[in-house]
Amino acid sequence: MSGESRRAGRPMGTTRRRPALQDTLHRISAWAVAPLFLLPLVWMLSASLRQPGLPPPRGVEWIPNPIAWSNYAEPFRLLPFGTYALNSLLVTASAVALTLATASWAGLGLLLVPPRCRSVLVALSLVLLLIPPPALWLTRFVLFRELGLINNWGALLVPALGGSSPLFVLLFLWTFLRIPAALFEAARLDGAGALTLWSRISLPSARPTLTAVAVLSFLMYWSDFVSPLLYLKSQQLYTLPVGLHQLQQLDRTNWPILLAASVLLSAPAALSFLWAQRHFLQDSRLGGTGEW
């Protein structure tokens, strides 16, 4: 299958020949996607601005009156949300940096080992992707305890030392497989070592993949609720998702405050995705994410 035939794309080819009515219908239903998928986010935003303690609304209230911006300060007053946010940022930044390094090393490593080993390892990675995470919590907890990683960001970052997800490693492998082998050969003749191959040849030609993996791992660590729940003990170490859970325990029906905190947690994830979205959603780019 040639690159052109894919790029030319069926869509352009068929649109012209479609009946006008069908075409309009298609367009309308495509645009209906927007309100549908924005609905939960709009609900979150509008409820986060409602003044706490007001009697419940009658009907759907899209824009609350009065608008209570102070709800966004409340999580910081009730709990050390500032510390949590900083912790989340530190953990996530470290994890993303580590993931980019280790996953791309592993991707390049897979490229360099003999093909037979490579296919075994690729198959292994695919199998690992099929293990439900809850099946490993308990023994990871015991192992981490023995390694002294409980109540320690180390427990959150250990997966990043191993590339975070086999999927990221495979994404890098697939990217590197597109680099002409001659480039590697030439560099080798110049006596380049593994790290030079990695930094001079592999990385520069993998920028879109780097961005994609950076954002995917950002989302993975930023959203992580289970690991801090299981492994962190001291409040000074907590990350935002656990903070949100604490807030929920304080008053489980104080919706405006809970949803304001949810917006605070969601905004960085949404913004980083929007910043990098073309790397996932551009035409004819294969992508996948490590999570839901």
């Binding site: 939960p40 989302l219 949100l244 947690l265 949404a270 979205q277």
Partner: peptide, 25 residues
């Protein structure tokens, strides 16, 4: 492009926040 981004957007909402949205909804 905008529509694709919008369709993907709920997927990136952190699960703790996502649960609260629907608990409210």
């Amino acid at each position: 492009g905008f529509l694709r981004a919008v369709a993907y957007l709920p997927t990136v909402i952190p699960e703790a926040a996502y649960a609260l949205i629907w608990l409210w909804a």
